[in-house]
C-alpha cells in the first residue's frame, strides 16, 4: 500500500497516493496525532464528483470533528468501508489507511501539492 508512484501532501494535512489514474486519499500522521483517537469517519458517496478543496468527508475524534478536504478533483470510485465499524485503524497507521479513492480528473493539480520533504517543513512551521 505504501508503494505509490507519487505521494503528495496538502496544507490541510491530507495525503494523496497516486496509482495510475487512481488517487488514494488519507489523513497524515500529523493530522491523526493532533486529532487524537478517531471515533467516527463520514465517508463520501460513491460516484460523487469532487473539486479540489471540496469536503470529502469528516473525521471525528474525542476532541473535535474535522472536515477532510479533497486535495484534487475527481470522482469517488471507492471508499474504505472498514472505517465505518473500525475508525481507529486510522490512528494505527494513518499514512497507509486510505479513506477514499478518486479517479483523477486533472493530474496537473498534483504538482501544486507538497512532496514529503516540503510537507515535513510545513508541519515544523505549524508547530
Amino acid at each position: 500500500m505504501n508503494d505509490f508512484e507519487i505521494k503528495k501532501y496538502s496544507t490541510e494535512h491530507e495525503w494523496v497516493g497516486v496509482d495510475g489514474d487512481r488517487a488514494y486519499i488519507g489523513i497524515t500522521e500529523y493530522a491523526a496525532n493532533s486529532l487524537g483517537e478517531i471515533v467516527y469517519v463520514e465517508l463520501p458517496e460513491l460516484g460523487n464528483e469532487l473539486n479540489a478543496g471540496d469536503v470529502l468527508g469528516v473525521v471525528e475524534s474525542v476532541k473535535a470533528a474535522s472536515d477532510i478536504y479533497s486535495p484534487i478533483s475527481g470522482k469517488v470510485v471507492e471508499v474504505n468501508e472498514e472505517l465505518t465499524d473500525n475508525p481507529e485503524i486510522i490512528n494505527e497507521d494513518p499514512e497507509n489507511c486510505w479513506i477514499a479513492v478518486l479517479e483523477i480528473s486533472d493530474p496537473a493539480q498534483l504538482d501544486e501539492l507538497m512532496d514529503e520533504k516540503e510537507y515535513e517543513e510545513y508541519c515544523a512551521e505549524e508547530e
Binding site: 487524537g36 471515533v39 467516527y40 471525528e60 474525542v62 475508525p87 481507529e88
Partner: peptide
Amino acid sequence: RLDEARAAR
C-alpha cells in the same frame, strides 16, 4: 479517567 474513545466508539 474515562475511556472517551471507547465510550464514543
